[in-house]
């Protein structure tokens, strides 16, 4: 199997990956993929019914189902049926030196600036910190964590302390790409209820931890690291949108 620079650099990566059966699969189809599934599925279904082809009807039905519900039974089957927790890996390349990027991540208090599932992180000392999840009220949720591995310009790992009601662990790996004046970052986050059952607050947190969300978090980190700001259109003017207003 091909290994990227990051993987080759860190053969122990598998140690922090939970088994595939730990994946959380309530909603495993992206929004655009859902649109495409609905349109493609409908077309396939109609065509299948016209021609009396069972395979097209079944295929169209599956597409329509995953589009309508956001859950793909095929993805689900591939990932196993256990819903105990989630584990996500995402990579991004930042046009900054490994030194600058590492220093930004080392300021653990800054993590909530980029990671939308965190409200705040407060350092108690060099190794220990207090984390508060960004879950909507009335749920409140906090835990203590420690840095388990810190290799300058290579890797930072952390995990929640024993006794927390959540198992929250993460690693960020850094791989310099001098030819591109860039640094590849791989973020691995795993999160699971410590007791085994999914309580309200933990369930909320897990639902926020999707691959797409972590990807957006990394994108926000990259934008701030490179350009000093996150792009936005929130708050800009727009017309009233008469097509809908007049339709009602």
């Amino acid at each position: 199997m091909y290994k990227s620079g990051l993987e080759a650099m860190n053969p122990a990566l598998d140690d922090i990956r939970p088994s595939p059966s730990n994946r959380f699969v309530a909603n495993n189809v992206g929004p655009l993929e859902r649109y495409i599934s609905v349109f493609g599925g409908t077309a396939l279904l109609i065509r299948g019914m016209r021609r009396g082809r069972l395979s097209m009807i079944v295929g169209g039905g599956v597409l329509l189902y995953r589009g309508a519900t956001g859950f793909c039974p095929i993805y689900g089957a591939l990932n196993g049926d256990s819903t105990h927790g989630t584990q996500i890996e995402e990579s991004i390349t930042v046009h900054k030196s490994v030194d600058e990027v590492y220093r930004m991540w080392r300021r653990i208090e800054d993590l909530p600036r980029f990671m939308s599932h965190l409200k705040s992180v407060t350092s108690a000392n060099e190794h220990q910190s207090h984390w508060i999840a960004n879950v909507p009220p009335p749920f409140g949720f906090e835990w203590d964590a420690e840095i388990t591995d810190n290799q300058e310009n290579r890797k930072i790992s952390w995990r929640s302390l024993p006794g927390s009601s959540i198992h929250h662990a993460g690693s960020v790996l850094f791989h310099p790409v001098p030819a591109r004046k860039s640094t590849e970052i791989k973020l691995i986050i795993s999160c699971a209820p410590a007791g085994g059952s999914i309580g309200g607050a933990v369930a909320k947190l897990l639902a926020m931890l999707t691959e797409q969300q972590i990807r957006e978090d990394l994108r926000a980190f990259k934008a701030v690291a490179e350009s000093g700001e996150k792009p936005t259109i929130a708050g800009q003017p727009r017309g009233i949108g008469r097509t809908f207003a007049e339709g009602r």
Binding site: R219, K230, P231
Partner: peptide
């Protein structure tokens, strides 16, 4: 890389 707030789309 950075100017599209709807990069995911």
């Amino acid at each position: 890389d950075n100017s599209n707030p709807n990069a995911w789309m």
